[in-house]
Design a protein around this nucleic acid. Structure first.
Length: 729
RNA sequence: GGGCAUUUAGCUCAGUGGUAGAGCGCUUCGUUUACAUCGAAGAUGUCGGGGGUUCAAGUCCCUCAAUGCCCACCA
């Protein structure tokens, strides 16, 4: 054995051996108790980012349980990541001077498909470099035909159960990216924008968006506001930049008398609050901004201007006409932005598919409250409840081509008969829509017309990934769903608890009739060495594979779980990576020491692995006896910690014991008195430690096993050490 | 406006009511054969501030402060 451990000569070779032997498949332990984890499918649009390296937690669990003799399935996959992938692809197009408008739907879809297929092997290879023992024969993609079929069916079932409806509502719309979003995808930032005080006849009101005034269908005051009591219910004659107009005054609790002048303009088509006020007071809705972000014909001479440009010009004209009382230039408020392109979200009225969430959220809340699903770390359940207890209906329509197209067709004839009046707010299912589980309907079920048009929209990606646990298991190998559902653990970053985890619980309970997993394990985020969030655009993102190259996968894996409490964020630490690399080298040299002390006689005996019990009977020397006892205790401790998902303490316990107990004290002690008997003990104890460490550092432990014990067998499928003789406490 | 997390050695962070811990860094010493990617010894802490409970508090309770994150319709 070489004096220095070189991970580069070991890792890829070992991984290949494992994979070729089929060790990653549950069939390795066919009779074992099922244990399953579905890998959170990484986005297929880019190489792995550092967060993906945290999936090491799953590999630790998977390897531990495999050694415990369970039938372990860890199923890999990739997410088409609808809008995000289309966004990334559009940037590529942009770099070539092209845009999505240069291609038709099919062409664009095919181009993105090819792009994604090119990325997938890169991503998969990176997961392998980290040593993840995923069953690659079962890998799934969210756009596999059989997965799409399941997603369609779920949608159809929800529709038939009245849990999906189509409605024209205000949605979060990004006029830059040309699609709507769910509430979760809007981020909020503080911005300084002028607050304009505008004269509306006898009243003055404050607004940040004067350009939407052509869509005003009322002004509102608080019902108890004495200042304005006389105006309530009356119509005001007002002067505007487009001439004279009339506007109604309504009273609504939503108005805060303390803010501005206590008068609010009501623009139902462009503000979420106003939309609700309009519903309460039966006010008409007038859309003045189009989906291209430009003012429409309702804005008269301002038509064609982008809303932001129009604002300046309109304010200018208002000032000339004396309609502006004052402008507060230092007004700070929070505005909604597109989480991807950071342009302001424009609330716009649009017909979309919505899922009624409350009936789905209730059982999901109950599943965690009752303990059917356990969350680690425990305090994260607050995030979960907070989301589900205040849940709103989910807009699942996206105006994108990259994704699963919604299996809904509209009958042209029926639609014309019940055409939406732009000035009313409607919610209806009876407007000529036909929802199927994927197949193209032959004719309209109401009027028999064959003039049907499919909805252009695709599902929100999270709608399909929300079905991932049952969709994958129902389509991987026959019997997988029956054997592995519900899965044992869902492990992911806490940042997608609401986006993904909560939705999986809801959709899993709905469609698969059972919770999708028994345990939720949440890890924290990995920040850069200065504690700042890693991001590509900021340029501080670290490629995990570069670190694997430099320090070895074992060191990277160990550094990520050592010294960080589960669920806490951590900053990438190069000294820690270096320390863990040294630990792999230390192990290597412990192995060298043992290897060098092997005599001809012991070569035969150490073929058989001795259990703690056998070792206890063998031990004569007092410090041997003590070490056997300590190792048994450690085994028990590590086992318990892993069962409790306490990876940090398991890692620390192993590190401290192996280095500072076993190497610094025990090996130093044995060194001077080594004989046949003590060698057998030393050798066997070391193997126990290698096994305990294997889930954390699979490569170096496997390589040592190969050198010292067996060229044929592998540690990965060896039996977890027993600790029957460990004393209590 | 709510909620959550964090605050422990110079730095990065563990800490499960019972004599303050690790890694890196620092000081001194040590290389004839497991490892200098090492070993031995050592220095460094009013555990954010202030109250309280307890025989005993870094740990439990209250309060204040700083930092970070999440949620919320203030036009």
């Amino acid at each position: 054995m070489n004096k220095v451990y070189s991970h580069k000569d070991v890792e890829e070779r070992i991984y290949q051996e494992w994979e070729e032997k089929g060790y990653f498949a549950p069939e390795v332990n066919p009779k074992g108790k099922p244990y399953s984890i579905i890998l959170p499918p990484p986005n297929a649009n880019a190489p792995l980012h550092f967060g993906h390296a945290m999936y090491v937690i799953e590999d630790i669990l998977v390897r531990f349980n495999r050694m415990m003799g369970k039938s372990v399935l860890w199923l890999p996959g990739a997410d088409h990541a609808g809008f995000e992938t289309q966004f990334v692809f559009e940037k590529k197009l942009q770099a070539q001077g092209k845009s999505r408008f240069d291609y038709d739907r099919e062409e664009l879809y095919r181009m993105i498909w090819d792009f994604v297929q090119g990325n997938r092997p890169v991503m998969e290879n990176q997961l392998k470099r980290l040593g993840f023992s995923l069953d690659w024969n079962r890998k799934k993609f969210t756009l596999d035909k059989d997965i799409i079929k399941i997603v369609h069916q779920t949608f159809k079932n929800l529709y038939d159960d009245g849990l999906v409806y189509r409605a024209k509502r205000l949605v979060n719309y990004c006029t830059h990216d040309g699609t709507s979003f769910s509430d979760l995808e809007v981020i909020y930032e503080e911005r300084k924008n002028p607050l304009y005080y505008i004269k509306y006849g006898p009243l003055v009101l404050a607004t940040t968006r004067p350009e939407t005034k052509f869509g005003d269908t009322a002004v509102a005051v608080h019902p108890d506001d004495k200042r304005y009591k006389e105006y309530i219910g009356k119509e005001l004659d007002i002067e505007t930049v487009l001439g004279k107009a009339k506007i109604k005054v309504v009273a609504d609790e939503m108005v805060d008398p303390q803010f501005g002048t206590g008068v609010v303009k009501i623009t139902p088509a462009h503000d979420f609050n106003d939309f609700e006020v309009a519903q309460r007071h039966n006010l008409p809705m007038v859309q003045v901004i189009g989906f291209d972000g430009k003012m429409n014909e309702k804005a008269g001479k301002f038509e064609g201007l982008f809303a932001k440009q129009a604002r300046k010009i309109i304010v200018g004209e208002m000032e000339k006409k004396g309609l502006i009382e004052k402008i507060d230039e230092n007004y700070i408020h929070r505005i909604g932005l597109c989480y991807k392109c950071k342009n302001p979200i424009e609330p716009l009225p649009l017909e979309q598919w919505f899922i009624k969430m409350e009936p789905l959220a209730k059982p999901a809340i109950e599943a965690v409250r009752s303990g059917k699903i356990k969350i680690y770390p425990k305090n994260m359940d607050k995030l979960y409840f907070q989301f589900l207890e205040n849940i709103k209906d989910w807009n699942i329509s996206r105006q994108i081509v990259w994704g699963i197209r919604i299996p809904a067709w509209q009958c042209v004839r029926c639609a014309q008969n019940q055409k939406y009046n732009n000035s009313t707010i409607q919610q209806s299912n009876n407007d000529g829509w036909i929802v199927t589980s994927g197949e193209i309907p032959e004719k309209c079920s109401t009027c028999d017309s064959t003039d049907l048009i499919q909805d252009n929209d695709a599902f929100d990606t999270w709608f399909s990934s929300g079905q991932w646990p049952f969709a994958t298991l129902k389509t991987s190998k026959p019997g997988d769903f029956e054997k592995f559902y519900p899965t044992t653990v869902l492990e992911t970053g806490y940042d997608i608890l609401r986006f993904w985890v909560a939705r999986m619980v809801m959709l899993g309970e709905y469609e698969a009739r059972q919770v999708p997993f028994e345990n939720i394990v949440l890890h924290g985020l990995v920040n850069d060495p200065l504690g700042k969030k890693m991001s590509k655009s900021k340029g501080n993102a670290v490629n995990p594979i570069e670190l694997v190259d430099e320090y070895g996968a074992d060191a990277v894996r160990f550094a990520l779980v050592y010294g960080t409490a589960l669920g806490n964020d951590q900053s990438l630490s190069y000294p820690k990576l270096e320390a863990m690399r040294k630990f792999t080298n230390k192990l290597w040299n412990m192995a060298r020491f043992i290897d060098m002390n092997r005599t001809q006689n012991s070569k035969v005996k150490t073929q058989n692995n001795l259990t703690i019990e056998q070792l206890s009977n063998l031990a004569i020397n007092e410090s041997d006896k003590a070490m056997i006892e300590k190792t048994a205790k450690l085994t028990k401790g590590i086992t318990t910690l892993l069962e409790k998902h306490d990876f940090n303490h398991a890692a620390q316990g192993l590190y401290d014991f192996i280095w500072h107990e076993f190497a610094d004290i025990y090996i130093e002690n044995v060194k001077n008195r080594i004989d046949e008997n003590s060698f057998l003990i030393l050798n066997s104890l070391f193997l126990i430690l290698l096994k305990l460490l294997h889930p954390f550092m699979p490569f170096v432990t496997e390589e040592i096993y190969k050198r010292l014990w067996s060229k044929k067998d592998h540690l990965i499928i060896s039996k977890w050490p027993s600790f029957a003789k460990a004393s209590e406490g």
